[in-house]
Design a protein around this nucleic acid. Sequence first.
DNA 1: TTGAAAGCGCTAACAA
DNA 2: TTGTTAGCGCTTTCAA
Lengths: 343, 343
Amino acid sequence: MTRTSGYVPTTPPTLADVAELAGVSRQTVSNAVNNPDLLRADTLSRVLEAIDELGYSPNRAARNLRTRASHLIGLRFAPAQEGTANATMDRFVHSLVETSSAAGYHVLLFPGDLEDPTAGYDALLRSTAVDAFVATDTYLGNPQAAWLEARRAPFVAFGRPWDNPDAAHPWVDVDGAAGAEIATTHLLEKGHERIAWLGWHKDQVIGEDRRAGWTRAMRSRGLSTTGLASRSEDTVNSGREASAHLLEEARPTGFVCASDTLAVGVMHTLAERGLVAGRDVAVVGFDDSQVAQTVPPGLTSVRQPLEDVAVEIVRALEGLLGHPPVRRGGVLLEPELVVRGTT
Amino acid sequence: MTRTSGYVPTTPPTLADVAELAGVSRQTVSNAVNNPDLLRADTLSRVLEAIDELGYSPNRAARNLRTRASHLIGLRFAPAQEGTANATMDRFVHSLVETSSAAGYHVLLFPGDLEDPTAGYDALLRSTAVDAFVATDTYLGNPQAAWLEARRAPFVAFGRPWDNPDAAHPWVDVDGAAGAEIATTHLLEKGHERIAWLGWHKDQVIGEDRRAGWTRAMRSRGLSTTGLASRSEDTVNSGREASAHLLEEARPTGFVCASDTLAVGVMHTLAERGLVAGRDVAVVGFDDSQVAQTVPPGLTSVRQPLEDVAVEIVRALEGLLGHPPVRRGGVLLEPELVVRGTT
DNA sequence: TTGAAAGCGCTAACAA
DNA sequence: TTGTTAGCGCTTTCAA
């Protein structure tokens, strides 16, 4: 166990080593691993014993070369924005790693070039380094999905093809409108009537979708939304400024926000004015970030079922990569509300 | 070389396709890609032209098989704890993906079995699926490092080998004691004298290390630390309770915490008592999480230079995997303090 | 039920 | 400077 010398690569045992030890042909060992049913019981156990004794595990590169499959799923991993509460991607990656591992796949991360979202995909695709991709951030104007479709690359999108309802690729998404509606209804049931919406700029389809949920909930109670909505950048400071403005102009008693980041901005405004979130003004965020979970007194937030998203994505991936390939349609999942101190 | 024609998506071009188009041998194409210096200028340009025309990219599996290298780095990816502010791992992964990509490596994620930290490593190692590992969470009692050393697996640790100063593997770590000392000194310079420490249980070496920085700073000013320290679990609620207790027993005017999670716990206590963080009591966290960055009025926190950690780790990795291998020693990096509203 | 032969696409070693 | 040969470790024929 003590080591003094440097790293000496020891070659792992191969199929041939196992075959020799078990006294069978290499092919029989391969069958023992991949088609155990084909072997006679005693041959199988003899081979398995040899495998165990040598600690044999099939060489991935050789298997990949032969089967033209890597059992790797590529995921573009763009850094979380500093200064925001947004970390949906990180939580999703965890779920994806767990789920895909159970299905025999590993996740390969590659960096996202902010200028060219399709960079990185191409190299991995052409070198057959991955079997498929999981594409995130497939919002309007992002060319990833269309590019991948054109290349006939197997992929599943986390996010609806907003700009192309006829897109042929499988996708999984969370119903943001339903989430905002649940959040708004929650406040309505608490007796609030002047509920403000804090969202993103109009060109953000996801933000507009969530906003529609707020509108729907308000309208269903016959409540006006006039003057109660605001659109801004997804930063704490924008949320702070927008909520300060709304508070003066429209006197809302509750805020439903498109993100936890904006919701924290509201909490800044409240703190600055000596108001207490949850007592004086209600606040609901979106994404159930660590910030929502820990900030006093706890931020009520809409939580996306990312574990389920990962499960559906892997399911679609398995269909895509199966023999024969099975193409699944889109899957829309429902978020839930996590109630905390701010409401 | 016959290529299947028809409606089926084309298989990517191979070395042989390029060779035929350029009118050279396969080996020459290989050299054009890997040792361009060996070719005559006109031959090279002709081959590169053919490569470009066909969109050729070397097949990874074949190259991996032949060179016995995957250019993949394995990283065990354990989920961030819900309800805490801890997300150092996520930020680190981003940096690692960026940095290793620049060095020609991709990051392969595999799930962490909480019960057996070494599970997952073994399978990847034996199947030569990765060239090396980056091992995190190498705290005392975690068998990963020793296990990997015993297997002679190439790896670099993010974290010092606390329990084995003679460990032969390269490691990169951040000086936690220095971080806590900077934080404490910051409060001392603001005029605080009764500065409390909120840390983890004694068996957490990292926590004890950070605590030593607080002690050092206090002692250097001749200040007593008696009754000013507390040890608890790394949860918001533990931080809340511990700080409430300290506030009553020891009347500190400032808190230095082993994590942002505990620091947020302090902020809960302050809010509950109508105290204002930064005005009535100072609070410093550790890790510069998104929570620290966004919670009102902004939590002063010690930030680990994870980008630099990734750079050093990849550098060590390149040494380990080079020909000949170069073993680097440990690297200890300095954190910095990000000052915000709570101080 | 088992074995032999072929070859996936690439590069190291050597020959021309 | 370029080409030829061999073989990385595996699985897919197909034959025994």
